[in-house]
Design a protein around this nucleic acid. Structure first.
Ligand SMILES: [Mn+2]
Ligand SMILES: [Mn+2]
Ligand SMILES: [Zn+2]
Ligand SMILES: [Zn+2]
Lengths: 131, 131
DNA sequence: TTCCATAGTTAGACTAAGTCTAAGTTATGG
DNA sequence: CCATAACTTAGACTTAGTCTAACTATGGAA
């Protein structure tokens, strides 16, 4: 298991204590936390308080560096995802929980639509009930 | 062409002047406007000022009644869509414009995933360049 | 007609997600 | 040791959206 410090270094992000704690939190859950979840989750993990600005700055930095990704399944807040490989999402409409769906569970979609739309990528959100 | 008053009546929504003006605005554009767009767009259409609260209330009422639908393609604000039939969306990544993609332009996706996820519905957002 | 109840609208206060700012702290290279 | 740059902090600010309390329109009873 590669350390979070190494991971951040490999992505060109200087591994400050705050960044390591924040990255650790997002990377070690499958819950697709919001920024607010992260803020609460990392509180008390360091002798200093981790400010709201640092949480948002760090999440944006980690997304830009490709360490994590954002996912928008519902309005209100964006969520963060440790899984940066191509995949889709399933939202359990009862609990609100979000599950990863591997890319190849789903048929490939066309790379061009109606002649005039050149597709660079797509995201599928499934809604339903998980068992 | 059925009148907006009739349309609202058919959906069980009392067609007040404010609601008619707001519904007309959303129904007569393909631009997928935000609530703020609607607020600006209907300003001055009536002798009274249409308040922010009425715009948001009316949009929510129209969505609940099935007259229009919401679409979330990016974080920040939700958009409103005159097209309530099943379809997908294409986001032009240069301009930000959103285009409707007919349901049957895209292959059907599975109704069950990995055994444990029963799919009730799905939404696909394509990203790319329109010509 | 008048009265009342209900539904709808309004301005503005309030909340929640996120950004920005200005000052303080922490590395780093010379 | 110092200068500079990078980072972090608290809190102000912005934006999207909801809530509140007062006001207005409507549609029957009486
Ligand atoms: Mn974001
Ligand atoms: Mn909404
Ligand atoms: Zn994911
Ligand atoms: Zn649409």
């Amino acid at each position: 298991m590669i350390s979070t410090e190494e991971l951040l270094n490999n992505h060109g992000v200087k591994p400050t204590p705050q960044r390591v704690v924040i990255a650790d939190f997002v990377l070690s859950t499958h819950e697709h936390p919001t920024a607010e979840d992260v803020l609460k989750g990392v509180a008390g993990q360091l002798p200093v308080t981790i400010s709201r600005a640092t949480v948002y700055n760090t999440l944006n930095t980690l997304v830009a560096a490709g360490v994590i990704r954002e996912v928008f399944t519902e309005p209100g807040a964006c969520r963060y995802d440790a899984n940066v490989s191509k995949h889709h999402h399933f939202v359990d409409t009862r609990t609100g929980r979000i599950f990863d769906i591997p890319w190849d569970e789903v048929p490939q979609l066309p790379r061009s639509l109606k002649g005039r739309f050149k597709v660079h990528g797509y995201e599928i959100t499934f809604f339903g009930e998980a068992t």
